[in-house]
């Protein structure tokens, strides 16, 4: 198989997998109380999975939408570093940069930087981005419509779904001892401060703590 075809096939595979994951986003968002239009707007406009889950997770747990928005933006900070890695490969400017920026996420970055040939890297970025954007939004719509039809999403256990979604997003990042220790410490800290601050604020306290740890304390 020529490398171009293999890349497009992989891109489609990633798109289909995330489409399935978008179904759960659409369901969780609707169960959290966001409207169909708000749910779809998040997938079209925000288009970065963990941030979307964070915003609807905080709102669903009774937190302020602004605490959710802050958590979403903090989770999106890693995309800036992805953009940094991709800028020399993509070499986009003007309108193409405006569009390409929207596609700078975990999956497109992983697909693009895995290629030795820059032309193949660019093909991987754009094909993954297009497949993902299409199927991510389609999946969101399907999940939101299906949940919209339910009278009480709690009967399906949908209130237990967000932690599982966050766990599934977290797991691939825990392959070493330090991230595992950080994850456990973060969860304990968030639970410890939870009774004393408004909903959603524990996330911001954890974000400050990990930033201080990374920027100030850690050696090496």
């Amino acid at each position: 198989m020529p490398p171009q075809r293999a890349i497009m096939r992989d891109a489609l595979g990633i798109g289909i997998a995330s489409g399935a994951y978008a179904i759960s986003f659409g369901a969780i968002s609707t169960a959290a109380g966001l409207s169909l239009l708000q749910t779809c707007a998040l997938s079209v406009l925000m288009f970065t999975g963990a941030s979307q889950f964070a915003l609807v997770g905080v709102v669903g747990a009774g937190g302020s939408v602004w605490a959710g928005a802050a958590a979403a933006a903090l989770l999106g900070s890693r995309n800036a570093l992805y953009g940094l890695r991709l800028s020399s490969l993509l070499r986009v400017s003007g309108l193409r940069r405006i569009v390409a920026s929207h596609f700078v996420i975990d999956e497109t970055t992983a697909m693009a930087i895995a290629r030795d040939d820059p032309a193949l890297g660019r093909l991987a970025f754009w094909s993954t981005g297009l497949a993902l954007f299409t199927l991510w939004n389609l999946g969101t719509l399907v999940g939101a419509l299906a949940t919209h039809a339910l009278s009480n999403p709690k009967v399906l256990g949908l209130d237990a779904a967000p932690p599982a979604a966050f766990l599934a997003l977290l797991a691939p990042r825990l392959r070493a001892r330090e991230p595992l220790a950080i994850a456990i410490a973060a969860a304990v800290l968030a639970i410890a401060v939870l009774p004393f601050v408004p909903a959603g604020v524990p996330l911001l306290i954890v974000a400050v703590a990990v930033a201080v740890y990374g920027m100030v304390w850690r050696r090496g």
Partner: peptide
């Protein structure tokens, strides 16, 4: 530091939710 932020936030979300 930036790659640590999603780890901490996602873990905090798992715990609190």
């Amino acid at each position: 530091t930036v790659p640590l932020i999603p780890i901490a936030l996602l873990a905090a979300l798992v715990g609190t939710q």
